[in-house]
Simulated scan of single mutants.
Amino acid sequence: MAVALVTGANGFLGNYVCREILDRGYDVVRLSRGSTVEDEKASPLSAKPTASEICKIIDERQAAIVYHLAGTSQASDLEALYQANVFFAQSILSAAASAKSPPKVILIGSAAEYGRPVNSDMISRESDTCSPLSAYGISKLAQTHHGLAASEAGLCVTIARLFNPIGVGSPATTALGSFVRQIASMPTGGGILRTGSLHSTRDFIDVAEAASAIVRLSLLSDVQGKVYNVCAGAGVRLQDLVSQLIEVSGIAVQHQIESTRRGTSDIDTVIGSNDRLRSVGLDISKPDFRSVLEKMLSHERAIVRKS
């Protein structure tokens, strides 16, 4: 059975990607930083993994693919941000290149790499010049450049540039994840939903569809050395999603906008083109938002009841 190594396997996207890989007959081994526990399905890494320790695991497990999903937008300082988003990725790439049988490497990028849209239609394309505005976006773009350089040197690397995944398990660090948790914690009589400005438009995608597209992309030939937007190609206003969320909640929710609450981006519109993804036979449809929101809310309410 072919083996896939996965970093960030316990994260939001990681859980869905692991399920998708398993469904396709791969044996999944989780790489976990800072862990001291090792079993058949997991390999511990040091807090700051080196290429040599990762290479040893690749060789021992005879990995065919490495999915590098680990990363953060919430680091305490710049050094921690670059350790998570750049140095770890570089160690993965160096390890893969040094392995006895170099595996494919899939790097997860971010829409934050683009910065403000440069096209009149407000759609971001892989051929656009990237000008990220945040330290997070800059660090993810640095990861992309390292990946493309490794590809030029002969390693099979593909970058999946992820837009805005939503679904059951969305972390509280995301706007929608935070809003769902607030409503899930309200009594049956309702309560106040506190948000910042909801004027932004984003390319939201179902995380399960995103995971499927990433795994299917990794199994294609002739995709190495390229960046692929993983997006639906359509924007939705955050205000509209919040209105739907309040509607499906079934309780009296008062919406209160607080100027002190701010998101992580000052960019109003973030929408990607999925033309390149579709050119290789892959497509991500616009989510059934009502269904997704109902599932997210039901999941969080179940957690609240158990607590």
Results as ranks from 00 to 15, higher is better:
residue 104 K to P: 01
residue 156 C to G: 05
residue 238 L to Q: 11
residue 196 G to I: 00
residue 270 V to Y: 12
residue 158 T to H: 10
residue 153 A to V: 06
residue 257 I to T: 14
residue 194 R to D: 05
residue 2 A to T: 07
residue 275 D to E: 13
residue 160 A to P: 02
residue 236 V to M: 13
residue 262 R to V: 11
residue 127 S to Y: 05
residue 227 V to M: 10
residue 168 V to N: 03
residue 293 L to M: 08
residue 100 K to L: 10
residue 122 M to G: 03
residue 290 R to Q: 13
residue 237 R to G: 02
residue 156 C to N: 13
residue 296 M to Y: 06
residue 131 S to H: 12
residue 307 S to C: 09
residue 140 K to W: 01
residue 122 M to E: 06
residue 288 D to F: 03
residue 126 E to G: 00
residue 247 E to T: 00
residue 197 S to G: 09
residue 93 L to A: 09
residue 159 I to K: 00
residue 248 V to A: 03
residue 71 G to N: 05
residue 133 L to I: 12
residue 31 L to F: 09
residue 39 D to P: 07
residue 250 G to L: 00
residue 295 K to G: 05
residue 118 V to D: 02
residue 152 E to A: 06
residue 27 D to Q: 13
residue 4 A to F: 08
residue 192 I to L: 14
residue 258 E to P: 00
residue 177 G to S: 07
residue 294 E to I: 14
residue 154 G to E: 12
residue 188 T to E: 11
residue 194 R to Y: 01
residue 125 R to E: 13
residue 175 A to I: 02
residue 302 A to F: 02
residue 290 R to V: 13
residue 7 T to G: 02
residue 221 S to H: 08
residue 268 D to L: 07
residue 176 L to Q: 09
residue 103 P to Y: 11
residue 102 P to A: 06
residue 210 A to Q: 09
residue 114 Y to P: 01
residue 269 T to I: 15
residue 221 S to Q: 12
residue 269 T to L: 04
residue 4 A to N: 10
residue 185 S to R: 13
residue 65 I to W: 01
residue 78 L to C: 07
residue 32 S to C: 09
residue 279 S to F: 03
residue 123 I to Y: 14
residue 128 D to Q: 05
residue 3 V to Q: 06
residue 285 S to M: 11
residue 82 Y to V: 14
residue 282 L to K: 06
residue 204 F to Y: 15
residue 79 E to R: 14
residue 305 R to C: 09
residue 98 S to A: 15
residue 219 L to Y: 04
residue 82 Y to T: 07
residue 306 K to Y: 10
residue 240 D to E: 13
residue 257 I to D: 10
residue 244 Q to F: 03
residue 103 P to N: 11
residue 238 L to W: 09
residue 284 I to Q: 10
residue 236 V to T: 11
residue 27 D to N: 14
residue 232 A to S: 15
residue 223 V to G: 04
residue 67 Y to H: 14
residue 272 G to L: 05
residue 59 D to R: 02
residue 127 S to A: 14
residue 225 G to N: 05
residue 234 A to R: 14
residue 153 A to Q: 15
residue 168 V to K: 08
residue 239 Q to K: 05
residue 197 S to E: 14
residue 252 A to R: 01
residue 137 G to E: 10
residue 134 S to T: 15
residue 282 L to A: 02
residue 160 A to M: 06
residue 286 K to P: 00
residue 184 A to D: 03
residue 209 E to S: 15
residue 279 S to Y: 01
